[in-house]
Design a protein around this nucleic acid. Structure first.
Length: 263
DNA sequence: ATGGTTGAATGTCAA
């Protein structure tokens, strides 16, 4: 079974709804993970997605954050929040069991600035994620971790690594925190398939003409354990949505996997 | 230099 999955930080699912619906019609992924939906659950535009044949699982809050998974087939199970006894006040984590594969969709805290307490909360979020993976899975099992991880892993993942070194999103402590989760058992599917490419997924609104000048960051990711990394056929970034009128500041990343038999 | 723009909200925060 060929499986197409995608991740897209939409920066407001209601503001981006026509764009997301058109994108789904064009690309027809088996599942699409959304971040920064910025909508309470009772206002999530579920019907618009169902009209296109997608099931919607979501966890939102007022004004900020919010994650959702849209899927062609209904998820067998859904986890909203970590459920580990820690705080669940921010809507940043949802996981679904789809076609026998668990997919964790995360909106990692941005961190604001390395001197800000939010930065420590960002580092702690990675630790919490690793504990969730380790408590529920083995690295030998098929598992996807995707979303806006808000970290560029390597120098080739930012437009100016010398200038940006030590800034939020490209700070050594964040790269280490991400690397520790990866070391549990994940591969970065984009980097696996494209070892040299300088391909970004985010271009800041606040930098004049950042998209036209390609002043971007690769901070949206699709990570997979070994059996799914071996099953990965292709990974790519669709930059077109970032060039539309009133775009999100992010653009989608997609992957195609040949799911192992029986998954 | 510490700017700039956007969404959700209708203050101003978070990114």
């Amino acid at each position: 079974m060929i499986w197409k999955l995608a991740t897209f930080n939409v920066n407001g699912v209601r503001a981006r709804l026509p764009q997301v619906l058109a994108w789904l019609g064009r690309h027809s992924p088996d599942l699409l993970c959304l971040q920064e939906t910025k909508v309470q659950d009772q206002d999530f535009p579920r019907q618009d997605f169902e009209n296109l044949g997608y099931h919607a699982a979501f966890l939102g809050q007022k004004s900020y954050n919010g994650v959702a998974v849209l899927s062609r087939r209904p998820p067998g199970q859904v986890r909203r929040g970590f459920g580990d006894g820690g705080g669940e006040d921010e809507a940043r984590f949802i996981a679904v069991l789809l076609d026998g594969v668990w997919v964790a969709n995360t909106y990692v805290p941005q961190g604001r600035d390395p001197s800000n307490p939010a930065f420590q909360a960002k580092l702690a979020f990675f630790d919490r994620l690793e504990r969730w993976f380790a408590a529920n899975f083995q690295p030998s099992q098929p598992l996807i971790w995707t979303g806006d991880l808000n970290v560029a892993p390597e120098a080739q993942d930012v437009y100016d690594p010398q200038r940006l070194e030590g800034q939020v999103g490209f700070h050594p402590l964040e790269r280490q925190a991400l690397a520790r989760v990866m070391a549990w058992g994940f591969s970065d599917l984009f980097r696996l398939r494209h070892p040299q490419d300088k391909q970004f997924t985010f271009w800041d609104y606040r930098l004049p003409k950042s998209f036209q000048r390609n002043l971007g960051w690769r901070i949206d990711h699709i990570m997979a354990t070994a059996p799914l990394a071996a099953a990965c056929r292709e990974v790519w970034v669709d930059s077109a949505p970032r060039g539309l009128e009133k775009p999100s500041d992010h653009t989608p990343m997609l992957a195609e996997l040949e799911l192992p038999g029986g998954a």
